[in-house]
Structure formats: C-alpha cells, structure tokens
C-alpha cells in the first residue's frame, strides 16, 4: 500500500433490507484518501455518497443496514470487521465527522463549552478540568468564534447557523483527528457564510495536516475545495479523477450532463441542458450501467456491466463509450 494513503475503501457494498426488498446503498465503491488531501464525493440524493461515509465510521444502523462486501482500511485495521470497542477509539479521535444540520447534532440543553469538553474528556481522560476549559477556548478561537471565553457558556440556540457549524467543527477537531468527514457541511447555510466555512475548513486542514472527505451534491463546492473527486450515481462511482480532470476533461455522460445543467454565474447560458428522466428507483436499478436509461448516448452494450477505463493514473470512468480508447483495467 502506498504509504501516503491514509484511508482506503475497497469494493464496498452496503445494503439496506426494506419491506420491498434489498436496496444497495453503495455497490462496489473504492476510493483512497491521501494524507493532507481533500477528496470530494459528489452525487445527487440517493446516490450513496453519505452511505459510504457512514460505513467508514460504522454508523449505519444494523439492521436494516449491513456492510456485505469490501474492506475499509485505516492504519492497517479493516474497519468493516473492527470491534465496537476499537471503533469507539477511532470515532472522534482518528476520524471525526461534521453534519449538514448542526442544530440536530448539538444537544440543546448543554452549553457549547461543555459539549466540546465532553468529547475531549472521552478520548483524553487524563486532562484536568482547567486544562480542558483552556483547550475548549483555544478550539473556539481556532474556528474563528469571536469572544470565545464568553461563547463557551452559551447554549446552541443562542448561536446562528454559521456559528453552530463552527462549533461542530471545533467539536470534531477537539482530538486533532487525522481525517475529517464533512457531510454536506454548508448546504444549510447562506452563501456568504458558506464561503466563510469552506475557507475555514481549508485553513484548518493545512494548519492541522488533516485529510478531508467532503460529501456534497454541489459541484461548485467541489471545484472550490477538492483535490480529487469521486462522482457517484445510483450507489456506484461513475467517474473518478483529480479535480481538474473532472471539470475540464470529464468523460462520463452523467457528469457532462450534470455540469451542463447547472445555472452558472460566470457564463451566459440561453437554455439549460437537462438530463431526461429521473434517478432510478433504488429497488429497480437497470442492469449494466445504471445511467443508461437517461443517457443520450445509450448503446446496446450498455446493458452489460460497463468497463472501468483509465485515462490517466488518477482518472477513470466506467462507461462503454471509451471501451476502445484508453486501456482496460
């Protein structure tokens, strides 16, 4: 294994058993996160982008969820088979997570300072309470909360949405994790606040030498933050590459369509491009390429599992269009 690689997800399949049958949350997903890198997983709702992240921290409720196949390697440990005790050590301390809705992730009746302090105490029980207090204030300072000492004693509802997200980040960073998983961290925020939070995450990443796994539906956020990008559709990665390759040499028709259908500030557009149809029902995903029913370039061979075609060391797409170009896996 490449020594730079911190986390590697290999051929992960997570399923959910529902009353109507078994649904694939994600199916055969592989990616790796290097040290200090930001990997963005981008996809629409139901594409399985959050499921993969939740699988890494084993936060999938079992049942109905289940990791049926694949490995998640972190530090030589396979997280899919790790015991709950080992997972508790990793969660928060090694891999931390921030969520879209900061309000529901914070306990409304406990002060912000105590909530951050608690996660510190959990992982470093030897710290004295004055030390903890000091560290909490440092953390709040770090995430750019003004008059941190005072804010410590406030309750979550006294903070605005942006401030709450900052508190969430402070909580996540409490034990200096090596990986930060950010699940739609700015989707609930206003644009001006989104810009602040994104730049804060970038700044902290450099400062603390973290790797960030950014999960989002917004291609613009990806362009702004990511080094590498995995594009997901119906539980699979359809294209993977460095950010420049994804935005300037995209190969998969789905990614192409997605980029063309976005209204943009920097370009004049007459009519927006539309991807016909809808995301397939997770219970009834077509065989072969899941995108084929919406694809403008559908061919007969699309009914078969599409091949993985590499365009560079880091860039691949899973599509029959390129079966003759590129080189097979």
């Amino acid at each position: 294994m490449d020594p730079d690689i911190l986390l590697e997800v290999k051929d992960l399949q997570t399923t959910f058993t529902t009353e109507d049958g078994v649904v694939n949350g994600c199916n055969g997903v592989s990616y790796s996160l290097k040290k200090g890198e930001t990997l963005a997983v981008v996809g629409e709702s139901g594409s399985g982008k959050s499921v993969t992240a939740m699988s890494i921290l084993r936060l999938i409720p079992e049942p109905p969820g289940q990791i049926v196949r694949g490995q998640i390697l972190f530090d030589g440990i396979d997280l899919t088979t790790a015991s709950e005790k080992e997972m508790r050590k990793i969660r928060g301390k090694e891999i931390a997570m921030i969520f879209q809705e900061p309000m529901t992730s914070l306990n409304p009746v406990i002060t912000v300072g105590r909530q951050i302090g608690e996660s510190l105490k959990l992982h470093e029980p030897q710290l004295s309470s004055t030390k903890i207090k000091q560290r909490v204030i440092e953390l709040l300072d770090l995430v750019g909360i003004p008059s941190a000492e005072q804010r410590c004693n406030e309750f979550p509802h006294q903070l605005s949405g942006g401030m709450k997200q900052r508190v969430m980040i402070a909580m996540a960073l409490a034990c200096s994790p090596r990986i930060l998983i950010a699940d739609e961290p700015t989707s609930a925020l206003d644009v001006t606040i989104q810009a602040q939070i994104l730049s804060l995450i970038k700044k902290l990443q450099q400062q603390l030498d973290m790797s960030v796994l950014m999960i989002t539906h917004d291609l613009a956020v990806v362009a702004e933050t990511a080094d590498s990008v995995a594009v997901m559709y119906s539980g699979r990665i359809v294209e993977y590459g460095a950010v420049d390759e994804i935005f300037h040499q995209s190969k998969h028709p789905y990614l192409d369509g997605l980029k063309k259908s976005m209204p943009r500030l920097d370009i004049e557009q007459e009519e927006l491009y539309t991807i016909a149809g809808m995301v397939p029902n997770p219970l009834d995903i077509p065989s072969g390429c899941p995108f084929r029913s919406r694809c403008p370039q559908e061919m007969a061979c699309c009914q078969n599992e599409p091949p993985t075609i590499f365009f560079s060391d880091s860039h691949y797409a899973r599509c029959w269009l390129y079966a003759d170009g590129g080189h097979h896996d």
């Binding site: 401030m163 917004d218 613009a220 956020v221 362009a223 702004e224 300037h248 980029k259 500030l265």
Partner: peptide, 25 residues
C-alpha cells in the same frame, strides 16, 4: 458585490482564496 463574490464557481481554475464577507447577519 460580496454576494456575487461568495458564490463558488464550478471551475477549479477560478478558485479564489479570499472570503468576501466577514461576520454574520
């Protein structure tokens, strides 16, 4: 002006490092 500058552009070659507007509403 700040609002326009805050909108992320879906093109990694047009990244901007600065935050256009500080503070909260």
């Amino acid at each position: 002006q700040a609002l326009f500058a805050s909108v992320p552009i879906p093109d990694p070659r047009k990244r901007s490092a600065k935050v256009p507007l500080q503070g909260e509403i």
